[in-house]
């Protein structure tokens, strides 16, 4: 378990990267005002300092042999890689929504996600998808008039039949 070590490297790298960007921000200082770069610079210096302190602490603990690394919050999950499936479905939904529209993408998203999360019966899948999609349409499209993506081409024309 090298979480704190990895975390400190990421924090140090990111803070240095953004510090360099901060130094390149244009100068706007005039009497009484301060640059747009001063506040982020202060934050990034603290971040860098904390990253270094975390790295030093981790190194010292390892050298002493009593590592105080945080343990993973789970022991042995039943489906260790399923979070990637959920993420893939979510990313697919986000990609598809502007193309095929909210109306078509949402039932597909709910069915796929429910499948990943362990729902197997076709009736339950269809029912969950129908009820939650229907409720979302009623609440967000009709109730709150949120202009959810309509998609392009045919899907756009189709959406105008509903909202």
């Amino acid at each position: 378990m090298k979480y704190n070590g990895i975390l400190s490297i990421i924090v140090i790298s990111l803070s240095i990267f953004f510090l360099v960007m901060t130094f390149n921000l244009p100068d706007t200082e005039s009497a009484g005002t301060i640059n747009a770069s001063v506040w982020p610079m202060m934050i990034l210096f603290v971040m860098l300092l904390m990253g270094i302190l975390l790295a030093l602490r981790t190194y010292r603990e390892r050298a002493k042999g009593h590592i105080k690394e945080p343990k993973e919050s789970e022991s042995k999950p039943e489906n260790p890689q399923y979070h990637w499936l959920v993420m893939a479905v979510l990313a697919g939904y986000t990609l598809a929504m502007p193309l095929i529209g909210f109306l078509v993408a949402t039932p597909l998203f709910i069915v796929l996600l429910a499948l990943v999360l362990g729902m197997t019966k076709i009736r339950s899948l269809l029912l969950t998808s129908f009820i939650s999609h229907g409720a979302a349409v009623l609440l967000f499209l009709y109730g709150f008039n949120i202009p959810l993506p309509r998609g392009i081409g045919f899907f756009r024309s189709f959406s105008f039949l509903i909202y």
């Binding site: 979510l90 986000t94 709910i110 362990g118 969950t128 939650s132 979302a136």
Partner: peptide, 15 residues
């Protein structure tokens, strides 16, 4: 079951 709750939670988050 969570297979119903999970999709609903994520749908609400996206919207």
């Amino acid at each position: 079951p969570y297979s119903v709750m999970g999709p609903v939670i994520l749908l609400l988050c996206v919207i």
